[in-house]
Computed example of a mutant assay.
Amino acid sequence: MVIVNLILFGFCLGIAWVISKTTGLMFKTSVAANVPGGLSQLVLFAEEEGDVNLTAVTYFHIIRVLGVVLLIPFLVSGHVMSGGAIPVSVDAWQIVQLILVAAALVPLGKKIKLPVAHFLTPILVIIVLKLFSIEAAPMPSDVLHVAQLLIGAYIGLLLKPETLRLPVKVLIGGIASTVTMIALTYGTSLLIANYLDLSFATSFLSTAPGGLDQMGLLAAAVQADISVVTVFQLFRLLFIFLCILPLIKWVYSKKNT
């Protein structure tokens, strides 16, 4: 996972440098636009930073999400495996408790300056619970749908009509960056499939530049190994938010002092 992510982020930095040179976007904006994290998380990061072009970052990640959702199912459609979904019992009170605890700890995440504290704090809460062998209740799909609608509405409200004009170079750059990133992860997935003896669907969904939720849903649809896909995708998100984004903030804070 470390090797795959180092290759991916090294490649993304290269794409970001090319995009910044060809489109005129600030390199910090270009990096935030090309880092393969979740759409909502990177948009929140761009909003927090203030000097990042929020519209460009949103556009690049929307194009990436659309590319992933439209292209990847076709690429893995021939690798659907048999098997049924495992029913999961849901305890509504446990879910409410989990949401309240995670929400209550968000201010602590902000205080210790976690990047995108609203996203990262709940993840760290679940990790701590797992470390103490405490099983967290699985979120029902209806709750996730409501959360995604609220996130989408929030992102939509951030965008102002007067800021939605982007140069043609930026529009083309977003499409080119998405296609290039999917091609790269396709290649790395073939290596991982052979090295770790995984199915192509599992290895590709593990490395694809989509969000954790999207790749998890696709993994369930094609009966790939959801545990492996989730671990790879979660590791990448944590790598982004605990290593890459703090590094970007630190570099630019040094430049401004």
Rank of each mutant, 00 (worst) to 15 (best):
C12I: 01
V251W: 13
R236E: 07
G152P: 02
V69W: 02
L8S: 14
G173V: 03
T188L: 15
T188Q: 09
I7F: 09
L242R: 01
T22A: 11
K111E: 09
G174C: 07
V143D: 03
F60N: 00
L8A: 12
A221V: 09
R64I: 00
V168G: 08
L120I: 15
P246V: 09
V101R: 10
G152A: 14
L198A: 01
I95N: 08
S189D: 06
G152T: 06
L105C: 10
L196S: 14
L205Q: 00
L196C: 11
F235T: 15
N256D: 11
G84S: 09
V106W: 01
L25F: 02
P138D: 10
F239D: 03
M215R: 00
V231D: 06
K111N: 12
L129R: 14
L105I: 04
G152D: 01
L71Q: 01
L212N: 00
L129G: 06
R236S: 09
F9T: 00
A208T: 10
K28C: 01
A221D: 12
Q214D: 11
A103G: 04
M81Q: 15
A224M: 07
F235K: 12
P209R: 12
A85Y: 10
S82M: 07
L238I: 04
A104D: 11
L6E: 06
L237D: 05
L75D: 08
F27T: 12
A219E: 01
M81V: 10
E162Y: 14
F60V: 00
V52L: 05
L129T: 04
I248S: 05
L120D: 09
T230W: 00
W250A: 15
E49H: 11
G216F: 06
K28W: 02
G78H: 08
L205V: 04
V251M: 13
K254P: 05
K160V: 14
L205H: 00
E49P: 02
F200Y: 11
I62K: 02
L75R: 09
L108V: 07
G14Q: 06
P122G: 07
G210E: 08
L44W: 14
L6D: 07
P73V: 13
I155S: 09
I155F: 09
L44C: 13
G84M: 04
T230C: 03
S82R: 12
V43D: 11
F239L: 06
A208R: 04
L245V: 15
N5Y: 06
V170I: 15
S199C: 03
T207I: 12
L184N: 07
I112H: 04
I182M: 02
G211H: 02
L42V: 02
S203R: 08
L205M: 03
L184G: 03
I15Y: 07
T23A: 10
F204P: 00
A103E: 03
